Simulated assay, not measured.
Amino acid sequence: MSWTKNTTDIAGLDAPARALLDTLTPVEVPAGAVLFCPGEAVKGYVVMLSGRVDVHLIGPNGRDILLYQVAPGQSCIQSTLGLLGGEDYTGEATAAGPARLVLIPRDVFFALVDSSPGFRRLVFGAFAARMQDMMQLVENMSFLKVEARLAALVLDRAEGDTLRMTQADMATAIGSAREVVSRRLDRWAKAGLVTHGRGEVTILDRAGLEEVKNSPAL
């Protein structure tokens, strides 16, 4: 079956572009698989069909920051920059769970960019949206306190009143250290804002956390 017909953005492309894309075979990626590492050359443009890929920036001390996540309909800015600018990867991408994706090789990517206006709009539209996300990340890391970033994470990602996420993953997501996250959660628990255990945070006072989230910038 044609995978392009079941992919919202791709399905709207012109027939020649879809025919070329249909020559590519989707691949299944297991959870935890590393898709690329710093220093590797960019192999192609990734189209996510299902699942999610996390892209991290790893510092010289081994600490890492979650740069962005790639889900269906989203682009990998590192891949786009590498293809258009010729730069190697600077981050590391891992599958957050089982995923299905299509890798558009470099030569096919540029053939589509040259021949298909719809594909060009798709690529650059997704690139622009991802750049906005990156600018928001830079703004948050530069001007928001750790407490505000952590409160935003808990509020935004909680299902109902419960966030199921390890402290190490929370630290990575907000660009901090696990020990810092642990101390903040302990402080919030004493203040009656949350309770927390292994891999789980439960919101007790949503309004109080909103106040922390909206606390004055640095």
Rank of each mutant, 00 (worst) to 15 (best):
T172W: 03
V138W: 05
V146I: 10
M141K: 08
T162S: 11
E159V: 13
A152Y: 04
T166A: 12
A158E: 00
M141S: 03
D169H: 12
A171V: 07
E147L: 02
T172N: 10
V138P: 04
V138I: 13
D161F: 06
M170C: 12
E139H: 14
M141N: 00
L144W: 04
M170R: 07
T172D: 03
D156W: 00
D161H: 14
D161M: 11
L144I: 07
M165I: 04
T166G: 15
A168Y: 03
M134H: 10
L150I: 02
M134S: 12
R157Q: 15
D169V: 08
A158I: 05
G160K: 04
M165G: 05
M134D: 14
M165P: 01
V154C: 04
A152N: 11
R149L: 09
A158W: 00
M165H: 06
E139I: 06
E147K: 10
R149S: 03
G160W: 10
S142M: 10
V146A: 10
V154G: 05
E139Y: 10
D161R: 15
L137S: 05
M170F: 03
M141C: 04
K145E: 13
M134K: 05
T172H: 06
M170W: 05
L163Y: 02
L163A: 09
L150A: 13
D169G: 02
A151D: 01
D161Y: 07
F143Q: 08
L153G: 02
V154K: 02
M165T: 05
K145L: 07
N140E: 15
M141T: 04
G160E: 10
Q136M: 13
Q167F: 01
V138N: 13
V154M: 00
A151R: 08
D169R: 14
F143N: 09
